[in-house]
C-alpha cells in the first residue's frame, strides 16, 4: 500500500511558476531520491509537503488520510500542525536551536507535545523519563552519545546535522524529508551524515532525500525522481534513471555531473 500519494502539486511565487503538476507515490520503507538542477523546484516541493508553503493546487495523502487538499479552504493552524507531524524535515542549514544542548534540542518538541495529552499531569515524571530515554537512544543512533550536553556551537557541521536528524526522528514522522543534508558540509564530513541516513533505512522508515550526491542516491534509493523546471522529467529505479535515462534532459544533467 502507498504510504504517500502526492497528486498534481502546483506552486507559484507571484509570476514564477515553480511547481507545475508534480505527482508521485511512495511505499512504506522506500527511500526516494530527488535530483535535478538548481532552481528546478526540489526545495519547494519538500516545503509544500512540510506545510512550510501552501501549494496552489493538488493534494497530499498519507496512508489513508488526506492531509492536504488545495481545493478545500485552508484549515486552522491547529489542524495543520497535527497533520504536518506526518512529515519530518532535515534542513540544509541544520537550524538547531543554539541555546539548547544536544539532548534539549531533541526533547524540546516531544515535551511540548506531551503537554497536550490528557493524562500529562498525572504521569508527568514517567512521560519525561520516557521522552528523555527515547531521545538518548536516538542520539546514540546518530553516534553522538558523548555529546549530550554540548551546545550546537561546539559541534562540527556534520555533528550538528546528525543532531538535526535525531531531533526530526524524535517526533516519529511517517515520512522523513532531507533537503540537501550534506551540501553545507565540508567534503570530509559528508560521509558521516550519509552513513547515518543510510543506517536509518529500514522496512518502516520512509524517506525523501533531495541530494546532489549521485553515488549515495544510486546506492540507497529505491526510487529516483529527476526534476526539471517544476515537473518530474523522469522517475524510476536508480538503474533506470542513472544507467538508462530516457529523457534528453536527464541525460544532459547526468553528463554534466559526471564531467565534473
Amino acid at each position: 500500500m502507498n504510504i504517500l500519494e502526492v497528486k498534481d502539486i502546483y506552486k507559484s511565487f507571484g509570476k514564477t511558476d515553480v511547481l507545475k503538476g508534480v505527482s508521485f507515490t511512495l511505499e512504506k520503507g522506500e527511500v526516494l531520491a530527488i535530483i535535478g538542477s538548481s532552481g528546478s523546484g526540489k526545495t519547494t516541493l519538500l516545503r509544500c509537503l512540510n506545510f512550510l508553503e501552501r501549494a496552489d493546487k493538488g493534494s497530499i495523502t498519507v496512508g489513508d488520510k488526506v492531509v492536504f487538499d488545495a481545493s478545500e479552504p485552508e484549515p486552522k493552524a491547529s489542524v495543520t500542525r497535527i497533520k504536518q507531524l506526518s512529515f519530518g524535515m532535515v534542513f540544509q542549514s541544520f537550524n538547531l536551536f543554539p541555546q539548547y544542548n544536544v539532548l534539549e534540542n531533541v526533547t524540546l518538541a516531544p515535551l511540548l507535545h506531551a503537554k497536550e495529552s490528557a493524562d500529562y499531569k498525572k504521569r508527568k515524571k514517567e512521560i519525561h523519563a520516557q521522552i528523555e530515554e527515547t531521545a538518548k537512544s536516538l542520539i546514540a543512533r546518530v553516534g553522538l552519545s558523548e555529546k549530550l550536553k554540548s551546545y550546537p556551537c561546539e559541534l562540527s557541521g556534520g555533528q550538528q546535522q546528525r543532531v538535526a536528524i535525531a531531533r526530526a526522528l524524535a517526533m516519529n514522522p511517517e515520512i522523513l524529508c532531507f533537503d540537501e543534508p550534506t551540501s553545507a558540509l565540508d567534503p570530509e564530513l559528508t560521509g558521516e551524515v550519509l552513513k547515518v541516513i543510510r543506517g536509518l533505512k529500514s522496512s518502516d522508515s520512509t524517506m525523501i532525500v533531495v541530494t546532489h550526491e549521485m553515488e549515495f542516491a544510486k546506492s540507497v534509493a529505491d526510487k529516483v525522481i529527476f526534476m526539471a523546471d517544476g515537473i518530474i522529467e523522469e522517475c524510476g529505479t536508480p538503474e533506470e534513471v542513472f544507467d538508462h535515462p530516457q529523457s534528453p534532459k536527464t541525460q544532459a544533467f547526468l553528463n554534466k555531473i559526471t564531467e565534473i
Binding site: 512550510l52 504536518q84 534542513f91 542549514s93 537550524n95 538547531l96 518538541a109
Partner: peptide, 23 residues
C-alpha cells in the same frame, strides 16, 4: 533571528506561541 529557526520549530509541530517563547 533567521527564518530557519521558526521553520524548524514549525515542522516539529510547535505552535507559534511555543516557537516564540521557547525558541
Amino acid at each position: 533571528i533567521p527564518r530557519g529557526q521558526y521553520e524548524a520549530g514549525q515542522v516539529l509541530g510547535m505552535t507559534k506561541t511555543q516557537v516564540f517563547f521557547r525558541v
